[in-house]
């Protein structure tokens, strides 16, 4: 038996979901995700240096093997999976389960002035760092015959 939390009858309102648990503010996605079922979205910082656009994602506990980065047009996508962190303890009883696990994705729209080719990434201490070199805008002249 389980009932809907009476204080959260607005569960159908997605913005309420974020407030459900104090530390679950990242769940502000639509209830009906249009892209896929049950994904979570890691936190990220994005900043520019003189040379690069830097993206850092917080992905602690994710194995490098389970990470994938792809660029398609203006969109850079990071996907992967965080496996259950408690798998080592076969007999366990949760008191709290806050860390999102399972599949995640992060989509970042890239500005025009960064290269789509010159991309470097490092995964260290649970942080994935992606660097995209800034490139001068290429103006292609089209000759008129």
């Amino acid at each position: 038996m389980a009932t809907e939390d009476p204080r959260r009858l607005g569960g159908r309102v997605r913005s309420d979901l974020g407030r459900l648990f104090h530390d679950l503010t990242e769940i502000v996605q639509p209830v009906y995700s249009l892209d896929d079922e049950s994904v979570w979205h890691p936190y990220g910082d994005i900043y520019e240096t003189e040379a690069d656009l830097v993206i850092k994602l917080e992905l602690a506990g994710v194995s490098k093997r389970d990470l994938a980065i792809s660029v398609s047009g203006d969109q850079l996508t990071v996907t992967g999976v965080r496996r259950d962190l408690g798998e080592d303890d076969a007999k366990r009883i949760y008191l709290k389960m806050e860390i999102s696990h399972g599949r995640f994705s992060k989509e970042i729209v890239l500005p025009d002035h960064v290269s789509r080719e010159d991309i470097r990434s490092v995964y260290k201490d649970g942080i994935l760092e992606i660097r995209l070199a800034k490139a001068a805008k290429k103006v292609v002249e089209v000759k008129i015959d």
Partner: peptide, 23 residues
Amino acid sequence: LPIKGQVVYPYLIIPLVISNERM
């Protein structure tokens, strides 16, 4: 898990409170 007063559809995210020992 039997639930009361609510029908859950796919993609619907919903909070539940459980107090029954068995559940």
